[in-house]
Computed example of a mutant assay.
Amino acid sequence: MTGCSPSPTGQGAAPASGSASSATSPAPAPSASAPSQGSPAPSADYRPERFADQVATHAASAGVDPQLLMAILYNESYKPHDPAFERAWQKSKPDSAFGIANMHKAAFDEAKRGRPFAGRDWQELPDDPNLAVQAAAWHLHDLAAQLPGTWPASYTKDEMLAFGYNAGAGNMILFAQGTKPGTQAQSYVDTLRSNWDKAGQTMKHSR
């Protein structure tokens, strides 16, 4: 989950012209939040490996490691990403995250500034996995720009960025400066490590 504050611790195709259904009722107008072209057809399958092509595309555009981006998706797959579930959950927890990359509104709004998806809205994330992957890639890009030049040798650069994704840029910087990560942040990186090889294999098979 991303966007924490610092602390020490698609629509289906319309009926063909001339068909019975199109003669009796007009095709619905496109939704303003229709999934972007890179998203797979709507499905209840939100396994991270299903989005390997989107990960490869957006990681390359943002200049981040596709294995890291895929590992983040595996980390964030701990909860259902069905749009209806996410919206129902958000009603009871307004500060909850949206989309397959579990992004909070503040993090999304920051990541989209000056980017190709600047005109998109955080509320679209549950319905558009491609947008979620794109936003996560650029968020990692921005975190990399804020990461100090040195950090504890026990962590890789990708692991430091995972700290930032989970706990926020402020905490990432503190951890780089030597502050011991809290239990939740450390658990997130431990999970990333357990997902790392799987993420690498997923991206290797996507090529």
Rank of each mutant, 00 (worst) to 15 (best):
E159M: 06
A162N: 03
H81I: 05
M172V: 09
A153T: 07
S7R: 09
M1R: 11
D45Y: 05
R115A: 14
Y165R: 06
L73M: 15
A60I: 04
A101E: 06
A27Y: 11
A14L: 12
Y74Q: 13
A145V: 01
T202Y: 01
H205I: 11
R120S: 01
Q177W: 07
N195A: 06
V189L: 05
W138F: 08
R115P: 04
A14R: 07
Q67K: 15
L69F: 10
A153S: 07
W151E: 00
P42H: 06
S19A: 08
D197Y: 13
W151K: 00
H104D: 10
T150W: 00
I72S: 07
A97W: 04
G63L: 07
G114M: 08
Q201V: 11
D109N: 11
N171W: 01
R47H: 13
R120D: 02
A185E: 01
P30D: 05
S7V: 14
A107M: 05
G164S: 05
A60Y: 05
P152M: 02
S39R: 11
A41P: 01
H81K: 15
D142F: 02
K91E: 15
L69D: 04
K91D: 13
P40I: 13
S206D: 11
F108L: 01
A71F: 01
L68H: 08
G164M: 03
F108K: 00
T57P: 02
P80I: 07
H104K: 15
H139C: 02
S39D: 09
D197P: 06
G114A: 08
T179P: 00
K105L: 14
D53I: 12
R115D: 13
P15F: 04
S77E: 10
N171D: 07
A167C: 09
G38I: 12
G164I: 04
P66A: 08
G12N: 11
Y78G: 13
D128I: 05
A136I: 03
G10R: 11
A60T: 08
